[in-house]
């Protein structure tokens, strides 16, 4: 199956996933078009993180189908590298490589994985570091940076692989309120550039501002979804209403 840009870039069909006997995802279906920004919200333990980890094949699924640009993610014959070239992921705990400098962190994957020319990669890496507003920190080690700065390096590191889709797994959850903003600004810039973004987030204000579509998950199913204006102001499902009333 070849993928064309008018089809969903990421498509989930009736996805089921269990850890042992615990069913975490119980039939998730959602489509993301190229350039769309979607936010997944919901109480903890509702399967949000698992959902986006499945898109990146960090977790496997028991049934259903996930496709990224037409690639069947759960196909055992899938060349994982071809998937990972298309999908970038940023984690809550940054997960930078502590033994490498900022510049090396950003350059490592394109050089080692894509085997691209070092000079070109370096030029691109420096541009990306500037893009996430960290000029001058190229030679710093992750341990010397604040959480917000580390998270922006993590974003630059992901972008260095030129992905078509970016996954953000609660990327601001470990940050203090002041630094949250600098990371969100970076993501906003990305979205404005047309990057397809799937975010798991607890930042409702941010979701309302940036998302094309908001999904609310609870106990492994999507309870409700819609554009942020209708979703936040006119939620239909009682569970959504209850959740929103607690946090807004």
């Amino acid at each position: 199956m070849t993928w064309t840009p008018d089809q969903p870039i990421v498509s989930l069909r009736d996805v089921h996933k269990s850890f042992g006997t615990v069913e975490v995802l119980r039939g998730i279906t959602l489509d993301v078009m190229k350039g769309e920004v979607i936010c997944i919200i919901g109480p903890s333990g509702s399967g949000k993180s698992t959902l986006i980890r499945c898109i990146n094949a960090l977790n496997d699924i028991q049934s259903g189908s996930i496709t990224v640009e037409g690639l069947e993610v759960n196909d055992p014959k899938l060349d994982k590298l071809s998937l990972r070239k298309k999908v970038g992921m940023v984690f809550q705990q940054y997960n930078l490589f502590p033994h490498k400098t900022v510049l090396q962190n950003v350059m490592m994957a394109p050089i080692k994985v894509l085997r691209q020319n070092r000079a070109e990669v370096e030029a691109r890496a420096r541009k990306l570091i500037a893009k996430v507003r960290l000029e001058g920190k190229e030679d710093a080690y992750p341990g010397e940076l604040s959480g917000g700065q580390q998270q922006r390096v993590a974003i630059a590191r992901s972008l260095a692989m030129n992905p078509d889709v970016m996954l953000f797994d609660e990327v601001t959850a470990a940050l203090d309120p002041e630094t949250v903003k600098e990371v969100l600004t970076t993501i906003k810039d990305l979205a404005a550039d047309g990057m397809t973004c799937i975010l798991v987030t607890h930042e409702m204000g941010f979701a309302r501002e940036i998302a094309d579509c908001v999904y609310f998950t609870d106990r492994g199913v999507i309870v409700e979804s819609g554009p942020p204006a209708t979703f936040f102001d006119n939620a239909q499902d009682p569970r959504t209403q209850q959740f929103l009333s607690q946090i807004l």
């Binding site: 960090l58 994982k80 992921m89 984690f91 930078l96 994957a109 590191r157 992901s158």
Partner: peptide, 25 residues
């Protein structure tokens, strides 16, 4: 494990993760 996961999501093979990310640490 986050080191494994982030390297994996960047497309590193298991062997590369071991030699370039884990062993140096």
């Amino acid at each position: 494990t986050g080191q494994w996961e982030s390297a994996e999501s960047l497309g590193f093979s298991r062997r590369q993760i071991m030699t370039d990310v884990i062993l140096p640490q």
